[in-house]
Design a protein around this nucleic acid. Structure first.
Length: 443
RNA sequence: GGCCCGUUCGUCUAUCGGUUAGGACGUCAGGUUUUCAACCUGAAAAGAGGGGUUCGACUCCCCUACGGGCUGCCA
């Protein structure tokens, strides 16, 4: 049997690192097994689902190189859900209910106050045909629940291990709303069976859903896939991640200059017992992926961890990979390669190149300590005429050394600061030929 | 409130009754480098708390604390 996995986001917002973790795991499992990876847009919620978000999700996945073999949309399968709902009604596994949301809420509160689990009491299950007709005549709209078998539902979870959930502690799930909208729990079950999904990895927040969905799938006559539930991500301080999702969307990380492989390398290993190493390709991640190596405790995620990875990735890039980008900055072709060589060791993200280029082109505001003012003024007067080469720095500093008697760090550092405006940066010998302006000292 | 899961260096984790509690990232210190980075060497750094069981507990059991999840006509 070929392995089939899916990533099933709901296009009601931008996807974030938590979603990516789910998507990546499913992708890696499919690829490792030579199977199929489905992107399924769970868009049954017509009001909240937006094409804009669907497009953004696909753009994010494409950016990361997570190619899907098949694209599905739940909104195109509504007839199929209706058909299956009919079959389950015929089997007696769907029953119509008439409580209003307010009534259900009240029931839950009562049970809670009594210290009991807020499980639906199945009042509507015993309604007679006449009673239902009467309720409809009163203007009540029916909604549909799935009748759970009161048994322990068990499955061997790919991450958590053996899971056992007592169906009696769970309410019969509502699968069709009074307005006819098919709910996720049902649509997803139908899809997973119809599409031949064999493995589902998703967040631990779905564990209870899995229990009910296993029963739904079986009631349909289908074989439930293998399930695995990964721990949820929390913020670096252990805070709820949802509070920070705005800054952890993939589009935001992309805008901050995070490189795809840096992000993928972290997400494929974070929370597992395997070390995070910068992978050079998806193939490498596929090779080293092991679902069983993931722990079950909530995992702290710190977006700052992405930048060291991005930096080492960027610094290893060959010139032709960045040539177009450097040209776009306005760097003349004859200087482009040396500019890259000089700047790459001093950047974290590629966007940092712009800062170095403007520094070289326009010069920097000199950084001069008070005690170095006279020295720097004297040194600047000794700058050799252009054109400058890689030899210029050596010649100039030798001249300055002879004229002032300074040497070592006391000689070089003030000059570096005066020319580049900062204490850190590339080899000065390499900087000189690129430096088109030297700003004078303010009096 | 009820139910479920979890808690080992700062972080991600290994250990499946007997270990100097290991690794990776980060941090710090030396070395190298005119600076930074990189690299090399080294160091600091952990079993939430309390009870049991046992010759012996990070490991098994119970309690507490803390964290997370579920408890929707959301996904």
């Amino acid at each position: 049997m070929t392995t089939v996995t899916r990533f099933a986001p709901s296009p009601t917002g931008y996807i974030h690192v938590g979603n990516l973790r789910t998507a990546l795991m499913n992708y890696l499992i499919a690829r490792k097994a030579g199977g199929q990876f489905i992107l399924r847009l769970d868009d049954t919620d017509q009001e909240r689902s937006k094409q804009e978000y669907a497009d953004a999700i696909m753009r994010d996945l494409e950016w990361l190189g997570l190619a899907w073999d098949r694209l599905e949309r739940q909104s195109a399968r509504l007839d199929r859900y209706r058909e299956e709902a009919g079959a389950l009604k015929a089997k007696g596994r769907f029953y119509e209910c008439f409580e209003s949301p307010a009534e259900l809420d009240l029931k839950r509160k009562k049970l809670r106050n009594m210290g009991r689990p807020p499980v639906y009491d199945r009042t509507s299950l015993t309604l007679s045909v006449e009673e239902k007709a009467k309720l409809r005549a009163e203007g009540r709209e029916g909604y549909w629940r799935f009748l759970l078998d009161q048994e322990r539902i068990e499955w061997p979870d790919g991450i958590i291990g053996p899971v056992s959930i007592d169906a009696a502690s769970v309410s019969d799930p509502v699968l069709i709303r009074a307005d006819g909208q098919v709910l996720y729990t049902f649509a997803s079950s139908v899809d997973d069976i119809d599409m031949g999904v064999t493995h589902i990895v998703r967040g631990a927040d779905h564990v209870t859903n899995t229990a009910t969905q296993i029963q739904i799938m079986r009631a349909m006559g289908g074989a439930p896939p293998a399930f695995a539930h990964h721990s949820l991500l929390t913020g670096a301080q252990g805070e709820e991640l949802s509070k920070r999702l705005g800054t952890l969307s993939l589009r935001d990380l992309r805008a901050r200059g995070v490189e795809p492989m840096a992000l993928l390398s972290l997400m494929a290993r974070l929370g597992s017992s395997r070390p995070v190493v910068l992978a050079s390709s998806l193939e490498e991640l596929i090779e080293g992926f092991e679902l069983g190596s993931f722990g079950t405790a909530p995992t702290k995620f710190d977006a700052e961890d992405l930048f060291p990875l991005t930096r080492s990735l960027v610094q290893g890039m060959p010139f032709d990979m960045v040539a177009a980008r450097i040209a776009a900055l306005g760097v003349p072709a004859e200087k482009a390669e040396i500019f890259w060589r000089v700047a790459k060791d001093n950047i974290t993200v590629l966007d940092d190149l712009a800062g170095w280029w403007s520094l070289f082109r326009d010069g920097a505001e000199p950084m001069v300590e008070d005690e170095d003012r006279d020295f720097v003024t004297q040194a600047l007067a000794l700058l050799p005429p252009r054109p400058w080469t890689t030899a210029t720095w050596g010649e100039w500093t030798a001249t300055v050394k002879a004229a002032t008697g300074r040497k070592g760090k006391g000689l070089f550092m003030p000059l570096r600061k005066a020319l580049t405006g900062r204490a850190h940066g590339p080899e000065m010998a390499d900087v000189m030929p690129l430096l088109e302006q030297v700003r004078g000292l303010c009096p």
